[in-house]
Lab assay of single mutants.
Amino acid sequence: NRRVIAMPSVRKYAREKGVDIRLVQGTGKNGRVLKEDIDAWLAG
């Protein structure tokens, strides 16, 4: 149960899109989840 590193704005964006942020692979520094990662996850 790893802790997800993401800015609050990215967490909010994921919530609005209905994405469980824990399932998204972060590509930022130290595995940080970026807004682009959410978009990529939604695109498949």
Results as ranks from 00 to 15, higher is better:
S9L: 08
I21V: 07
V24F: 03
D37S: 02
V4Q: 08
R15A: 14
R32Y: 09
M7S: 15
S9C: 06
K35N: 07
K35M: 12
P8V: 10
A43L: 12
R3S: 11
L42R: 06
D39P: 01
Y13N: 04
M7Q: 15
G18E: 08
N30S: 10
R3H: 13
T27W: 03
N30F: 13
W41A: 05
K29N: 10
L23C: 07
D20G: 03
V33W: 01
Q25A: 12
E16G: 09
G44E: 15
G26I: 02
E16V: 11
A14E: 00
V24H: 01
Q25W: 12
D20W: 05
V4T: 08
V19D: 00
L42N: 05
L23E: 11
K17R: 12
R2A: 09
R15E: 11
R11I: 10
M7K: 15
G44W: 12
R11L: 09
W41Q: 04
I5W: 02
D37M: 01
G44P: 08
D39E: 07
G28V: 02
G18R: 09
I38R: 00
L34F: 08
I38N: 00
D37K: 00
K35A: 08
Y13T: 05
A14C: 07
R22M: 11
V24N: 00
S9D: 13
N30G: 12
A6I: 07
G44L: 14
G26S: 05
R32I: 09
V4S: 06
E16C: 08
I5C: 07
V19E: 01
V19I: 10
A6N: 04
G28N: 03
R3Y: 02
A14P: 02
A40G: 09
N30H: 12
E36A: 15
R22S: 10
V4K: 09
E16R: 12
R22P: 02
I38F: 00
V33P: 03
K17G: 04
D20S: 06
R22Q: 10
R32V: 08
L34I: 12
D37L: 00
L42W: 05
G31T: 04
L42T: 06
L23N: 10
M7V: 12
D39W: 03
T27H: 07
D37C: 01
V10T: 07
E36S: 15
V4F: 04
V10E: 09
G18S: 07
R15C: 10
G44S: 15
T27D: 02
G44I: 14
Y13S: 05
D20K: 05
I21Y: 04
R32W: 09
S9F: 07
P8T: 09
V19W: 00
E16N: 10
T27V: 03
I5F: 03
K35D: 04
T27S: 14
R15N: 12
K17H: 14
M7R: 15
R22T: 12
I21N: 00
K35W: 07
Y13P: 02
G28M: 02
W41F: 14
S9R: 10
I38V: 13
P8S: 11
Q25R: 13
V19H: 01
R3W: 03
I5V: 14
R32Q: 13
A43Y: 11
N30K: 12
S9M: 08
R15F: 13
V4E: 06
M7H: 15
W41T: 05
L34W: 04
R22Y: 11
V4Y: 03
R11K: 11
V10M: 04
K29Q: 13
Q25E: 13
R15Y: 14
R15G: 09
R3T: 14
W41H: 09
K35G: 04
W41E: 04
G28T: 03
V24L: 08
T27P: 01
R22F: 10
L42I: 15
R3V: 14
Y13A: 07
V10P: 02
K35R: 14
S9K: 13
G44M: 15
Q25I: 14
E16W: 10
L23V: 12
D20F: 05
K12S: 08
K35T: 09
Y13G: 04
G31P: 02
I5M: 03
K17D: 01
R2E: 12
A43R: 15
K12L: 09
R15H: 14
R11N: 04
P8F: 04
V10N: 03
N30Q: 11
G26W: 02
S9I: 10
A43N: 12
V24K: 01
A6D: 04
V10Y: 02
Y13K: 06
L42Q: 06
V10R: 01
R15T: 12
D39L: 06
V10D: 04
G18M: 08
K12G: 05
G18Y: 06
V24Q: 01
V4L: 08
I5T: 08
A14D: 00
S9P: 07
Y13M: 04
D39G: 03
K12E: 11
G26P: 09
D39Y: 03
A14L: 01
A40E: 11
I5A: 07
K29L: 13
A40I: 11
K17W: 08
D37R: 00
A43V: 13
R32T: 09
E36V: 13
L34D: 06
Q25V: 14
K17M: 14
N1M: 04
L34N: 08
G31Y: 06
E36W: 10
G31H: 08
N30C: 09
E36Y: 09
R11Y: 08
Y13D: 05
K17Y: 07
A40Q: 13
I21H: 02
D37I: 00
L23A: 10
I5H: 05
V4H: 06
N1G: 15
V24D: 00
D37T: 01
I5L: 05
K35H: 09
L34P: 00
N1H: 10
T27K: 06
A6T: 06
V24W: 02
W41I: 07
K12A: 10
D39K: 05
P8R: 14
D39F: 04
E36N: 11
N1F: 01
A6S: 06
G28C: 03
I5K: 07
Y13F: 04
L23F: 11
S9Y: 09
G44D: 15
V4G: 08
D39I: 06
L42F: 08
E36D: 11
D37V: 00
V24A: 04
